[in-house]
Simulated assay, not measured.
Amino acid sequence: MLRPPMADKYDLQSVEAALAKAELMAALSDATRARLAKQGQPCTVETGKLLFAKGDKGDALYVLLEGEVEVRSSTEGGKDVRMASLKPPAVIGEMAVLDGGVRSADIAAIRKSRFLRIHRDQAISALESEPKALLKLIAEMSKRLRHADAALEDAHTLDLGGRLAQRLLEEAGDSPSVTLTQTEIARRIGASREKVNRKLHEWVDEGWIAMGRAGIKLIARDKLKALIQEARAN
Results as ranks from 00 to 15, higher is better:
1 M>D: 09
2 L>W: 10
7 A>K: 13
8 D>K: 15
9 K>S: 10
12 L>F: 15
27 A>L: 10
30 D>H: 05
31 A>V: 06
33 R>F: 10
36 L>A: 08
37 A>C: 10
42 P>H: 03
43 C>E: 11
44 T>W: 02
44 T>G: 00
45 V>H: 09
47 T>N: 08
52 F>H: 11
56 D>K: 04
57 K>I: 13
61 L>H: 04
64 L>C: 01
70 E>T: 03
70 E>V: 09
71 V>G: 08
74 S>T: 13
74 S>H: 13
76 E>Y: 00
77 G>I: 11
79 K>Q: 09
82 R>K: 06
83 M>T: 07
86 L>H: 04
97 V>I: 14
99 D>R: 12
100 G>S: 10
101 G>K: 05
104 S>W: 06
106 D>M: 02
106 D>W: 01
109 A>S: 04
116 L>T: 11
116 L>H: 10
117 R>K: 13
119 H>F: 02
119 H>V: 03
122 Q>V: 10
123 A>S: 06
127 L>I: 07
133 A>Q: 05
134 L>Q: 04
135 L>C: 04
140 E>H: 01
144 R>D: 02
153 E>R: 15
156 H>C: 05
162 G>N: 10
177 S>H: 12
191 A>C: 09
194 E>D: 05
195 K>F: 03
198 R>Y: 10
199 K>G: 00
203 W>E: 01
212 G>R: 12
217 K>G: 13
226 A>P: 03
227 L>R: 14
232 R>D: 14
